[in-house]
Amino acid sequence: MAAYLLHLAILAGIYIILAVSLNLIIGYAGQVSLGHAAFYGIGAYASALAALHWHFPFPLAALGAMLVTGGCGLALGLPTLRLKEDYLAIVTLGFGVIVDLVFLNLEVTGGPDGLVGIPSPRLLGLSFRPQPLYLLLVILAVFLVLGFTYLLVRSYHGRALRAIRDHETTAQVMGINTPAYKIVIFSLAAALAGLAGSLYAHYITFINPESFGLHTSILILCMVVLGGMGSIIGSVLGAIALAVLPEMLRQFQAYQDLIYGALLVALLIWRPEGLLGRGKLSLKFLTRG
């Protein structure tokens, strides 16, 4: 039982990183990404391959995974983020489909079987294989991500981002390079998703394309909308709620996606600020009136 709770806590921590990073895209760049699970997957595969083939130590593998996913984010953001907000959603949806195709077809990613025997992290001779230690590692990563996000949001650049969020044209008039900010935020969020992927791969030690499909992207999106778009603390709570609830409601598993879909529509109609969002960091302009 304790092992199971620890397992849930580790997964919840990984989802917090995913939800907070997606929230940066939604709440600060004002875009929807449906390919967040693809970045998560690329991070997991990149980190696992680095560890398996080149025997990278975990911190280096995780860093490499972040660089790779950040680069993918940049490549995807450059053509799309200069345009209207809807394009990114479709392009990232397509990206997710392609990444799935690549994972399934490439030899180096092991096809449908995926990769096995990914080593657990070792730091200073200490193995992080035991769950409590791994949980500590995840908590450390979550705090780093949250601290970084908090500092970013409060900095000069955070103010610029909030200006873009509140009124893009005005922000542009004030001399803020809005496409550049959006692209940087998007690729930063992709890099954070890569970190989450790396944490997942080295914890589970076995990955296959199934974990990184559209279903996962929708799940992360639900976490953000449930917690409140633009609210960092909301994303943390949303991630915990949606990571833990499905485990407790196992008998309804077949209805999971049905519920997520209905939840998204219902939330946006009746509570666009999210169930848990406090409104302090929320996007006021998203609500009508």
Binding site: I26, G30, Q31, V32, L34, K84, E85, D86, A89, I218, L221, V225, M229, D257, L258, Y260, G261, A262, L263, L264, V265, L268, I269, P272, L283, F285, L286, T287, R288
Partner: peptide
């Protein structure tokens, strides 16, 4: 509402 809102709502409808 902001264009983001109906977009996400349509994504939800599609999954549903």
């Amino acid at each position: 509402a902001h264009p983001l809102v109906p977009l996400i709502s349509a994504i939800g409808a599609s999954i549903f």
